[in-house]
Design a protein around this nucleic acid. Structure first.
Lengths: 200, 200
DNA sequence: TAATATACTGAACGAAAGTTCAGGATTCAA
DNA sequence: TTGAATCCTGAACTTTCGTTCAGTATATTA
């Protein structure tokens, strides 16, 4: 690889990292291009050389995060011997990865804000659906294996998604250790809730 | 009351109602003063005649909501004969009131955004604490009455808060009926989760 | 009815933020 | 070495948005 290409890739990464950090910390609208230049040392123009726009930069981060998350999950998934264990693994990966998730806080601004591009809108709808599908799959696996009581997998997937979204918001201002505890407790409650719930 | 005072109060209410609706729907930053004038028909200046600033308007809505919520809760609280029932009542009031809650979506922008006034910061910290205290109280009541297993009331209060926050976000794009179902299912899971959880 | 207070208007201001662009610096290829 | 491609700069432009203010209309009061 060229020296030029290498340097280009490095600054691209530097910008992406700084942007992700800022989006996570401050949200999408609240972080300005100038915030990113301040954090990276490079100029405004340089950001627009590497990325189409602010929105494009955010979209890039979303894709990047998505790929990483799936990859990390697939690495570990087969190690778990029960679905219950898998759920705790899911929670652990959530707290370790999603607390730095650019979507977590920033996506909500997009969802509701009126000035979103079609591209972003589609991308986000896609991500929500894939989250719900993931949850649904997990719960269904537990039902099939006999660990969870059958029924209402669809509704429970939504409840689990709500729990995860809420946890990531609540956890934003506490330590990683506390966050892990809270997540574990939440999953514990969720699992016992599923188990104890009367069949429908 | 004067005709003038009456009219003044009416427009004040009209502005507040429109603003609340918009803040809920679009978030704080995303709704402009012009959005509000468009929705009310009155002018920009008129908003600043009735309210100190955009932030002041938001703060006014927070206070108003807080008072209403507590009042409505206290009206119903004594009607419930068990804490379990109370929890479902809590969920129902949540979905009926909080889905229109100006804080739900807008507060998060304040929490993290760097440009918040001390006044707002204090007000929000206060509200979070009172929420947690409310949850803690509810859970403790259940423990004291023997309905819930003892232990970890503090942690469970946080989990419940997370659940509620997540639910209100997830529910923003579905019908009231579906939201009610989801909330009920969530509370059911939470209650069975508490009940089935091993004592700590 | 005249004077005052209250309710309201809308153009204009200024700050903030996303985006562009002409041009400079550095590296690559011939 | 020289021309071209690539990487980068930062000032300037544009738009958006909160806020202000001089002025108008309506109601109250004396």
């Amino acid at each position: 690889m060229n020296k030029k290409q290498l340097q280009s890739e490095q600054t691209r990464k530097r910008i992406a990292d700084a942007a992700r950090h800022l989006f996570v910390q401050k949200g999408y609208k609240a972080t300005s291009i100038e915030d990113i230049t301040d954090a990276t040392g490079s100029s405004k123009g340089n950001i627009y050389y590497h990325f189409k726009s602010k929105e494009g930069l955010f979209l890039y981060l979303l894709d990047e995060w998505d790929r990483d998350w799936i990859a990390k999950w697939q690495e570990k998934e087969h190690l778990y011997t029960s679905i219950t264990e898998k759920m705790y693994g899911f929670a652990e990966q959530m707290v370790r990865e999603d607390l730095n998730h650019p979507l977590t806080k920033a996506a909500d601004e997009f969802f509701v804000g009126g000035d979103k591009t079609c591209e972003v809108e589609d991308r986000l709808a896609e991500m929500v659906e894939s989250h719900l599908a993931f949850n649904r799959g997990l719960i269904q696996q537990g039902i099939d294996s006999g660990e969870f009581k059958p029924g209402a997998a669809e509704g429970l997937a939504v409840v689990l998604e709500a729990l995860v979204i809420g946890l990531s918001q609540v956890s934003r201002r506490i330590s990683l250790e506390q966050a892990l505890d809270t997540y574990r407790l939440a999953i514990e409650v969720f699992l016992y809730g599923i188990a104890g719930r009367p069949e429908t």
